[in-house]
Design a protein around this nucleic acid. Structure first.
Lengths: 180, 180
DNA sequence: TCACTTTGTTAACCCAGGTTAATGAAGGAG
DNA sequence: CTCCTTCATTAACCTGGGTTAACAAAGTGA
């Protein structure tokens, strides 16, 4: 059995309107979600009530709170749709159980996790080694489609800055490039 | 077969002196390392030659460059010992191959990856949502033993700041606490 | 149509942290 | 012991980004 089959056969399709939440920080949510269509953002609310964007989620990816799914904690972030979305919901335990008796599935979960780990490693690198301006350029390069869907505010919070700082960066970049 | 057995039976023990490198950024290194003893740091050299610490590695953990092991790229960071260390080296492909036919091993690799993913998620959260001072306090809380082994410089670079800024933070904290 | 909300830009002011450099303490190596 | 290197602290100066607020543009709804 393949992962996609498991989602198709055992998962439940759900529709979300723009701006709706799939789950909220503090919830217990033990599901994985496969994104069929739409556009999501995962974000943290910090202690002082400020929003910081953990990641944007595009179609054909799998999303969920590992801490809640796997470590039986509460979701450390919220998941909401930026664009009307269709998801397939599947309890993580279901996948875990099947992966304990099905090698193909176990290996698919493995490569999912390996890809996730490498993505997170990249983000860690960017926060450690690149200034905000460079992170902005990287993002433009890596996922240009994001700029048509997310607000400047969300993009800034993904980069770890405010929308005011992002606006300044854009101005700086445009004046530099025109000066060349 | 368990993961620990695989390391014990198929791995090669290696000894490193303080300050020695296990691999360097740009190398191809397809091994996983199990840390028997010692203390390591993984660090990036950014374009302008500055060092940033990706992570500290304590005994009983497994370390390696996923990008090099799994994605067949070059190591994106260097791995060096801070304290004399004994490691067991095992090609990642070996683990991957066996995990494709051995469920127990596949599930152990899985939980290794899940733990890694959660650790990285925590770090991402800290960079996004916490100021340097808070990150410092967290680190003190999470791994106090680190402060006896790593230099202020390494700790600062792990926090994403310079050792000068770290010194200022410490001063700020000590004067605040004495004022209470 | 007009009112209201959301979004993006810009300015003014402030502060945390970067940079550079001086100083001192600690620890080898000879 | 002396020299030299590594490590930590501190000061002076500068800059990028946070904060607040004003303003304009673009939706959105009644």
């Amino acid at each position: 059995m393949k992962l996609s089959e498991l989602f198709r056969e055992k998962g439940v399709q759900e529709h979300y309107k723009k701006g709706q939440h799939i789950f909220r920080q503090g919830d217990e949510n033990v599901n994985l979600y496969f994104v069929q269509s739409g556009f999501l953002k995962a974000y943290y609310l910090s202690n002082d009530g400020k929003e910081q964007v953990k990641s944007f989620i595009t179609p054909n990816s799998v999303m969920g709170s590992l801490v809640s799914c796997y470590a039986k904690g509460k979701c450390s972030f919220s998941l909401a749709s930026i664009e009307a979305a269709t998801l397939i919901k599947l309890p993580f335990s279901y996948l875990l159980k099947h992966s304990q008796e099905n090698l193909l599935l176990a290996n698919q979960l493995q490569s999912l996790l390996l890809d996730l780990a490498m993505k997170k490693e990249k983000r860690e690198y960017e926060f450690l080694c690149l200034p905000a301006e460079q992170r902005y350029l990287q993002l433009q390069n890596d996922t240009p489609e994001l700029f048509t869907k997310a607000t400047q505010n969300d993009i800034a919070h993904y980069l770890g800055i405010t929308h005011v700082a992002l606006s300044r960066i854009k101005k700086r970049l445009s004046s530099n490039s025109s000066a060349l």
